[in-house]
């Protein structure tokens, strides 16, 4: 072991001890401000979501969710830029010819069969995000898998990046547009629009399901594009 390794180990040990001593002093149980209890009590009437988490993600802290979407967007642009430098050279030299072969009949058929089911599951999770656990991020990841699994079985095939980028851009634009409509209509950016309705019904919570739909499509398109870029690079 070099001196460098030992010093890193000592640093980690020190940091660990520091964190343990800090966490021992934390008051875990007491509810100091009552924010959580407030949200639990108000959310079903104020926002109309049966899933309280959704009310926090899209209504009380909608701007943070827009930020999360943008982090993913930024990361995918940056990764795309770095990976797109020399795709042809890399695929020829690094991957070699053998891995370009199709995956075989069984895997291909299974992947084709999986796709519609994954699409339906993903859309279901996105559209029911305000009444059941789940939502745009989780459903979007499943949508991305639906498009990526068939690609894995056909290594030679190139993904259509244009379509993905278009969907990504449109979903992002619609998320911000819904926020801006709320700004001009109700005076506040990203304020929930429409009636809260009956918590638990599919058509409830006003404009929140629309926001989740935009989130889901955006996450799906972005992840699929990113995975395909990583595969092609």
């Amino acid at each position: 072991m070099k001196a460098r390794h030992i010093s890193s180990l000592l640093f980690l040990l020190g940091l660990g001890l520091l964190l343990i001593s800090i966490f021992q002093n934390l008051p875990y149980s007491n509810n100091l401000t009552g924010i959580g209890a407030n949200i639990n009590a108000q959310a079903p009437q104020q926002v109309g979501t049966a899933n309280i988490v959704t009310s926090v993600i899209l209504a009380y802290r909608g701007l943070d969710t827009l930020g999360e979407l943008l982090i993913l967007f930024t990361a995918s642009i940056a990764a795309g830029m770095v990976l797109a430098y020399n795709p042809d050279e890399l695929t020829d030299s690094v991957l070699g010819k053998q891995q370009q072969q199709p995956a075989g009949f069984i895997l291909q058929t299974a992947a084709d069969l999986l796709m519609p089911f994954l699409l339906i599951t993903g859309m279901y999770i996105i559209l029911h995000g305000h009444i059941t656990p789940g939502g745009g991020f989780q459903g979007g990841a499943i949508l991305a898998a639906a498009f990526f699994i068939p690609l894995l079985t056909l290594p030679g095939k190139r993904m259509d990046y244009q379509l993905g980028s278009l969907l990504e851009a449109l979903a992002g634009i619609s998320f911000i547009s819904i926020g801006l409509i709320a700004l001009f209509w109700k005076g506040q950016f990203l304020a929930p629009l429409g009636e809260p309705g009956v918590p638990g019904a599919l058509l409830s919570a006003g404009s929140l399901p629309l926001l989740y739909l935009a989130t889901g499509i955006k996450v799906g398109a972005e992840l699929a594009n990113l995975l395909a870029r990583l595969r092609d690079a």
Binding site: R61, D64, G67, L70, V82, Y85
Partner: peptide, 28 residues
């Protein structure tokens, strides 16, 4: 937390921008 989210976007965008020089291993 909102500050953290925006700080993170800023951070990821700056990692990308610092790597934007073409064909430069040292910059990567």
């Amino acid at each position: 937390f909102n500050i953290y989210v925006f700080f993170e976007i800023m951070a990821v965008a700056s990692y990308g921008l610092t790597a934007s020089r073409r064909h430069c291993g040292q910059s990567f």
